[in-house]
């Protein structure tokens, strides 16, 4: 599925995941966490990985010029 719009959407999703990862790492975001205070590094790492996966997906979806 190669199209610029898919690539842009995945890139935007990656940025959102980075923001969420930072918020978890700083302890600002407590959503779905086992404790209600402090940083949640496990969640932060997960969202960082999801961000990487989104950017990789965006690069794969980007139409290539030969």
């Amino acid at each position: 599925m190669k199209s610029n719009s898919v690539a842009v959407a995945l890139g935007a999703l990656g940025i959102v995941f980075i923001i969420v990862a930072v918020l978890y790492a700083l302890g600002v975001l407590q959503l779905f966490a086992s404790t209600t205070s402090g940083p949640h590094y496990k969640h932060a790492i997960l969202f960082a990985v999801l961000a990487v996966a989104s950017f990789v997906g965006a690069n794969f979806a980007r139409p290539k010029t030969v």
Partner: peptide
């Protein structure tokens, strides 16, 4: 490498949110 990334993500997501 890409298969492992794709295979790891669902387990990681479910693990972080549901494991405990």
């Amino acid at each position: 490498a890409m298969l492992l990334l794709v295979g790891t993500i669902p387990a990681a997501v479910l693990g972080v949110f549901l494991e405990s």
